[in-house]
């Protein structure tokens, strides 16, 4: 009985250690673009599983070429995101004075909205009233759907031979 208890305690401790290590060793990445799109398979023509926001964290399941298979903490959602949308850095969305100093020279932290940001652009625009951003804003609203792309490829007799 006692032997059993000892084995159980030891076993539990081993499990706990392994679990903690696994959690710490799991490679985490952050979405470094405005909208991170997770797809069913590693292809831009694949079905969209979910969309992530700037700074969202994902854990890496596998890597295949320029694509990263990811999972979301506390969710069963899994899928593929192009690696150019990810950074190993943790993105701090709301900077407090304590992490500003750390992020300043850190290789692992990035502050959202640091440096050249909305505030700097506004100041720049105030000083350069001859510049018109109307069409810049309009350009950003040009959205091409996956359906449009598929149709364009089909009609143009184009068959992509993989991508990056």
């Amino acid at each position: 009985m006692i032997k059993l208890k000892i084995s159980l305690v030891t076993f539990l401790l081993i499990c706990l250690t392994a679990l903690a290590a696994l959690a710490a060793g799991q490679k985490m990445m952050s979405v470094q673009v405005k909208k991170g799109v997770v797809r069913l398979t590693p292809s831009f023509l694949s079905r969209i599983v979910t969309e992530l926001a700037y700074g969202d964290r994902v854990y890496v399941l596998e890597e295949k070429g320029s694509w990263t298979g990811v999972g979301l903490s506390g969710s069963a959602v899994k899928g593929w995101i192009h690696s150019s949308a990810l950074t190993p850095k943790k993105i701090v969305l709301k900077a407090g004075s304590e992490n500003v100093q750390v992020a300043a020279s850190s290789e692992e932290l990035a502050l959202a909205g640091k440096g050249f940001n909305q505030q700097v652009e506004s100041e720049f625009r105030a000083q350069n009233s001859n510049l018109d951003f109307t069409w810049i804003d309009r350009m950003e609203k040009f959205v091409v759907s996956q359906r449009q792309m598929k149709q364009f490829l089909k009609e143009g007799e184009l068959s992509p031979k993989g991508g990056s």
Binding site: Q32, V33, K34, K35, G36, F44, Y54, S66, H82, S84, A85, M139, E140, F142, V144, Q148, M149, F152, L153, P160, G163, S164
Partner: peptide, 22 residues
């Protein structure tokens, strides 16, 4: 824009912060 979007997806940096627009 449709043509450009398809091409950008085949580049080495298909994802940028605000995306490609033409």
């Amino acid at each position: 824009n449709i043509l450009g979007q398809i091409l950008s997806k085949a580049s080495d940096m298909p994802e940028t912060f605000g995306g490609y627009h033409f």
